[in-house]
Each structure stands twice: as C-alpha cells, then as structure tokens.
C-alpha cells in the first residue's frame, strides 16, 4: 500500500508539473504550425506569471490576474509578430529578445513596484485559483485503489489544470476540424498557396500568435497563482524550453504533446521524489541526469533515432509576397 500511495503521489505531482509545460507546448503548437518559430515561450510565460501575480495582488482577484496575464502575454506575442511577420525579421533573434526583455523587466518592475527583491506580495487564498474538490471525493477516499485515484489524481486540482487538459482536445479540434485550423496548418506548410487562395498570410499568422499568447499567459498564471503563491524571479526556469522540446518530441501534434509533457513532468516528479534514493538494478542515479533527460531525449529524437521529427515546412521563413 505504501508503494501504491507513493505512485499516486508521484502521478499527482506529475500532473501538477506538466500543466505549465502542456499549456506552453500547445501555445508553441499554434505558432509553429503557422510557420513562426517561437523561442520566446519562456519569456511570454514569465511576463504572464508576473502580470498575473502582480495584478491579482493589487486588485484582489484571481480572475483579473488571469486576464492581465493573458493580456500582457498576448502583447509580447504581438511584438514577436510585428518583428517576424510585418518586418520579416529573424524569428529566433526576436524570440531571444523577448526572453531577455521578459527576464529583465519582470524583476525590475517587481522590485520597483513591490520592493521585495523581485517578488510580488504573497497572494491570499482568494487571490489564487484554489483546488476544486469534485463531488464525493472525500467520501470515496477510503475505497481501495479507485478511491485515492479519484480523490487525489482527478479531483482536487485548480481550474487551470482542467483548462490545460481540455485545451488538448480543443486544440486538436481547432487545428484539424475547423477552417481556421486548416488554414493555420496550410500557412505553416506553404504560405504561397494560402496567399494565392486570397487569404492574408500575415493576419492568419498574427491570429495564431494571439492563440500562443493566450496559452502562455494561462501557463504563466498557473505558475505564479496556482503552483506558487506569488511571482518569484525567473520562476519559469527553462520550462519554456522544455515545452519547446516537448513540442518537437510530440512532432507538432496536440495529443502527442500532452503525452510528451506528461512524460517530462513525470521525469521531473520522479527526480524530486528519488533524490538520493538508489534505484533497483541501476543504483543511484544522479539527480542532474534526471533533470537533463528531457533535453537528452529531445536531442536523440531530433537526431532521428526515435522516428523522425519533421517540422512545418515553412517554419522560420518570413513570407515575402512576390510582386
């Protein structure tokens, strides 16, 4: 039973840890499917986290916080669009710039406005997104096997967790079952064809980037208003890049993205859980190896040793309309 409880706990933290990855990964999915590389997921998450926690603590409302997180994150996405769509700049350079601006401005504004060393004030419980207890969760807790699964794994998360997992089928539906989704995929593969059909490439890509901004905003809000009771500097800590890795790992598909993020979240949860305890057969695994594993796996995948990851064909290339 001990082992079972331990497994439940690890899986529970897997879910919690994979939610920001999943949201950011889906965010990247929209922009990369539209042919815009986005290294700036990290930065957009960070500004989302800051804007969310800062406005939640000022206005005492979690929902205003979420709204601001999305708003600021979309604004940064639009800057990326302005540089890479309107001015046909290098998308990677623009993404790097956004990460820098986000990292610097969140700390500096946080310090100037709240004077807590770059933190925002700790959020009260009504300024955060609390856990939603599903009906009957407490009643069935005692039931063996299924009880803990229902009450720990399924119930008891904040609304943003459910939003993240619902975003997976929703994204699939948008991309593969709507006209907008078809066009987004087309513009990522062959923008000239989309242009010939009389659809604006730029406007389509801007809309995809707005979707990206909304999702990174939610991811940021999750970090600072659910996982943590406030903003801490550099709190994304590379999650944007892991999300990028997950996106490649998932071969730019929404359902795969969920599994990739759950896998990376699981590795993270496991490395926290196993810190210092030896494993059977393998012996003691250095915690650094577990932390590096998502990146190593992605490199191996990219090298084509586990299937082949083929990015959208027009990815990273600014569209120039021929006259």
């Amino acid at each position: 039973m001990d082992l079972f409880n331990a497994i439940i706990q690890v899986l529970d933290s897997t879910i919690r840890l994979s939610v920001p990855l999943l949201l950011a990964c889906l965010a990247g999915l929209y922009s990369e499917r539209a042919g815009i590389f986005d290294i700036g997921l990290e930065g957009k998450m960070l500004v989302g986290a800051f804007a969310g926690a800062a406005s939640a603590s000022v206005f005492h409302s979690a929902y205003i916080g979420l709204g601001m997180a999305i708003l600021i994150s979309v604004a940064f996405a639009l800057v990326h669009g302005f540089a890479s769509i309107t001015h046909r700049g290098n998308q990677i350079v623009s993404g790097v710039a956004i990460n820098f601006i986000a990292a610097g401005s969140t700390i500096m504004l946080g310090q100037a406005w709240f004077q807590q060393g770059g933190r925002t004030p700790a959020l009260a419980s009504d300024e955060r997104f609390g856990a939603i207890i599903w009906p009957g969760a407490d009643a069935v807790r005692g039931v063996p096997i299924l009880g803990p699964i229902y009450s720990e794994l399924i119930s008891g998360h904040s609304v943003l967790v459910y939003v993240a997992f619902l975003a997976v089928p929703f994204t699939w539906w948008v991309l593969f079952r709507t006209r907008f989704g078809l066009r987004v995929r087309a513009v990522g593969e062959n923008p000239a064809a989309v242009d010939t059909a009389g659809i604006s490439v730029a406007w389509l890509r801007y809309r995809a980037l707005i979707c990206t901004g909304v999702l990174t905003g939610i991811a940021g809000a999750y970090l600072s208003m659910v996982q943590n009771g406030g903003f801490v500097k550099d709190m994304t800590a590379g999650k944007g890049y892991i999300a990028l890795a997950a996106l490649i790992f998932a071969k730019w598909k929404p359902v795969n993205a969920m599994f990739a993020c759950l896998l990376f979240g699981f590795l993270d949860a496991l490395s926290i859980r196993l810190q210092g305890t030896p494993l059977p057969l393998i012996g003691k695994v250095p915690v650094q190896l577990m932390q590096a594993l998502p990146y190593i796996l992605t490199v191996i995948l990219l090298a084509g040793f586990i299937g082949k990851a083929i990015p959208p064909r027009a990815g990273g290339v600014p569209y120039v309309k021929e006259r």
């Binding site: 540089a83 046909r88 290098n90 998308q91 350079v93 610097g104 770059g118």
Partner: peptide, 25 residues
C-alpha cells in the same frame, strides 16, 4: 535604488530586438 542590474538585461533584449529582429524597420 529603483533601478536594479536587471536594467541591463532589458537593454540587451531591446538591442537584440531593434538591431537584430527589427533591423530592417
């Protein structure tokens, strides 16, 4: 005191944005 060393990070980001991504603006 209102300005921390992170101001440099912002300036770096802006330089990368304007000298790099928006160089043709």
């Amino acid at each position: 005191p209102a300005i921390s060393r992170d101001m440099i990070v912002i300036i770096q980001g802006l330089v990368i944005l304007f000298a790099g991504a928006l160089e043709h603006m």
